[in-house]
């Protein structure tokens, strides 16, 4: 089973709303992909993510039409706690997803819910804390941690449950750029080391796109662009309410001067390599 996510003709509307928030979503994500999902506020990206772990329809209710299979499960028929075995979810607000009094117990929370035995819990907590680089904070209380550290613990709590897919909804919204970059690097690391499929909702395309194998742009409930970021950036994303990274804007200006680039650079390293070729 190499498909992490399969969505066919998905429509959704929240309870009590007059209009659909998701319209005709068709999507296939292979295992091991790192997908960057973006779009203007209200485009439906958070709503779509909630469908990936069962929060929609089981927590939010509403009317979900169409087919959606995640990690082999039919989301409409699978309860959230079963989806949680395969799909981990990281939310925007670092504070609202840490509810224990110590880091250790937070990371263990999911495993305790699943009835895993004590020794195994201990092993996995150790492993998860190590892999996110927070081993020394085992006994810390949440209020002692910075925003970035809290998000790492949230990621560790999810990793401890050994999911195949991890969905992150604007995890860096409250973090500064340098810390955000470290989170993206961690996700890239997890993808390489563990083969984790990553779905990342972000506005910070300048920092995140280099780690993504795929960029999906949503607008008004639909998927309007879907492909390799390096080629997708040829489109004018501004018309969908998304800002293009300045590097890309610069290279688009070069294209106006007569140069053409198949693949646009996603990092300053790539950009400088490309630029050196055309400068005397």
């Amino acid at each position: 089973m190499s498909k992490a996510i399969e969505v066919k003709g998905l429509y959704y509307r929240y309870d009590g709303m007059d209009e659909d928030v998701l319209l005709d979503i068709n999507l296939e994500v292979k295992r091991g992909e790192v997908v960057l999902l973006t779009g203007a506020s209200g485009c439906g990206k958070t709503t779509l993510c909630r469908c990936f772990n069962g929060l929609i329809p089981h927590f939010y209710g509403g009317d979900l039409r169409g087919e959606i299979r995640v990690a082999g499960f039919d989301v409409k028929k699978t309860p959230i706690h079963k989806m949680a075995l395969k799909v981990g979810f990281i939310f925007q607000n670092p504070d609202s997803q840490l509810f224990s009094l110590t880091v250790e117990r937070d990371v263990a929370f999911g495993l305790e819910n699943l009835g895993v035995d004590k020794e195994e819990i201990k092993r996995r907590v150790d492993w998860a804390l190590e892999i996110v680089g927070m081993k020394d904070y085992r006994h810390s209380a949440p209020y002692e941690l910075s925003g970035g550290q809290k998000q790492r613990i949230a990621i560790a709590s999810v990793l401890a449950m050994n999911p195949e897919i991890i969905v992150l909804d604007e995890p860096t919204a409250y973090l500064d750029p340098k810390t955000s970059l470290k989170i993206f690097q961690l996700l890239d690391d997890l993808n390489r080391k563990l083969g984790l499929t990553v779905i990342l909702v972000e506005h910070r395309l300048d920092l995140a796109s280099r780690y993504a194998s795929r960029l999906i742009v949503m607008s008004q409930g639909r998927i309007v662009l879907d492909g390799d970021p390096a080629t997708l950036f040829h489109h004018k994303l501004e018309e969908y309410g998304v800002s293009t990274p300045r590097l890309i804007r610069f290279f688009r200006q070069l294209e106006k001067e007569g140069y053409s680039f198949d693949r646009l650079p996603l990092s300053t390293e790539e950009a400088s390599t490309l630029l050196r070729r055309i400068i005397s």
Binding site: P177, K178, L181, P245, L247, F250, T268, A271, S272, R276
Partner: peptide, 15 residues
């Protein structure tokens, strides 16, 4: 100051 530089400035620095 632990700040990332603007992307364009960084590119200019490199080339």
């Amino acid at each position: 100051a632990s700040l990332l530089p603007p992307q364009i400035t960084e590119l200019a620095y490199r080339i």
